[in-house]
Nucleic acid binder design. Structure first.
Lengths: 135, 135
DNA sequence: TCATTTATGCAACAATGTTGCGTTTTTGTT
DNA sequence: AACAAAAACGCAACATTGTTGCATAAATGA
C-alpha cells in the first residue's frame, strides 16, 4: 500500500518517507507538521520539511491553510499529480470550531462560479461550523 | 474618512494607525505585511503587527491566506465588526496567477453549501485564474 | 486639566521554515 | 551482484515571521 503509493507518484521509497506516509494513512483528517512530529519517534526536522515539500510537489498530499495561522496537510485523491492537483475542484475543506479538526469532504454538486471578465481556473471552498461528530 | 473609520470601529486614532489605515485606503487590492512596510517611511515592526492584529479583531481588515505561504490583508466592508466578520458570506477572493494580485470580489449569487450531518456556519471561497486586467 | 486606559518602542525570544554541503542510500544498468 | 549516477539524508547555520514583557508616552473621558 505505502510502497505502491510512493511508486505511483515516482518517489523514492526510503524508510523515512514510508514512515511519514504511514502517519498520513493512519489519520482520518488533515494534520499539522507538529502532529506528524508527535507521531515520529526520532527524526530530522529538515528532512521532514523536505519530505513534505516533495510529497506536495508530487501530488501525494496537499496543503490546507485558513486564517488564524492554521496550516494542515492531507492526502490527495489518487488522481493528483505534480501537474494537476485536482482536489480543488472536487472536495472542500471544513473546520469544526468545536474539535478544531479539518475535514476533506467530497461534494458531488460543486458550485460553479462565474466572474464577469475574469477567467476562473479553480475554486477552493472552505467551510466552518460544527462537524457530524460534535453535533 | 480615516478618522471616521477608526472611530466607527472604536479604535483610538493614533498617528501610526491613521498612517497604516491610509495605506489600505490607497490600495485597490489585498496587500501583504511587506507591502505595508514598504509604504511606511519609518516604523516599529512590533507596533505594526499589533496594529494589524487590532484592526483584524475590530473588523477593520481581514486576513486572506492561500496555499504557498500567501498571506494578505484587505479592508472589510463597513458592516464588519469584532463580533461578526460578514465578508465571508458576501465576497470571494481571487488570485490572478499572472499579476499575483489578490482581489476581493462581491458575488451577488453566493452558492449555498449543504453538507449532510454537518452544521455549516460560514463559507469562504477562493478562486485562481486570470484577472480582468491581465486578460 | 487630570486620571485612566491604551498604544508605543525597545529588547529579547519563539516558531517555522530554508540553504549549503558532505555523506549515505536508492535506483537503474551492466 | 556490483556499480555508477542521482537523489535523499542529516548536520550546522541562517532567515523570516511573529510574540511577550516592560517601561514610557499618548489618547480618551470625566
Amino acid at each position: 500500500m505505502i510502497e505502491k503509493l510512493l511508486k505511483s507518484k515516482k518517489l523514492r521509497r526510503t524508510p523515512f518517507r514510508k514512515e511519514v506516509l504511514g502517519v498520513f494513512l493512519n489519520e482520518p483528517n488533515a494534520i499539522s507538521v507538529t502532529d506528524i512530529e508527535a507521531r515520529l519517534k526520532q527524526f530530522d526536522r529538515i528532512t521532514l520539511y523536505r519530505t513534505i515539500k516533495s510529497f506536495i510537489e508530487n501530488g501525494l498530499i496537499h496543503e490546507i491553510v485558513m486564517p488564524g495561522d492554521i496550516k494542515k496537510l492531507a492526502l490527495c485523491p489518487d488522481e493528483c499529480s505534480s501537474v494537476n492537483h485536482v482536489h480543488t475542484t472536487q472536495h472542500m475543506h471544513f473546520r469544526c470550531r468545536m474539535c478544531e479538526n479539518i475535514f476533506c469532504l467530497n461534494l458531488h454538486e460543486f458550485p460553479e462560479i462565474n466572474i464577469p471578465r475574469f477567467k476562473v481556473d479553480s475554486i477552493e471552498i472552505q467551510g466552518t461550523g460544527i462537524c457530524n461528530i460534535c453535533l
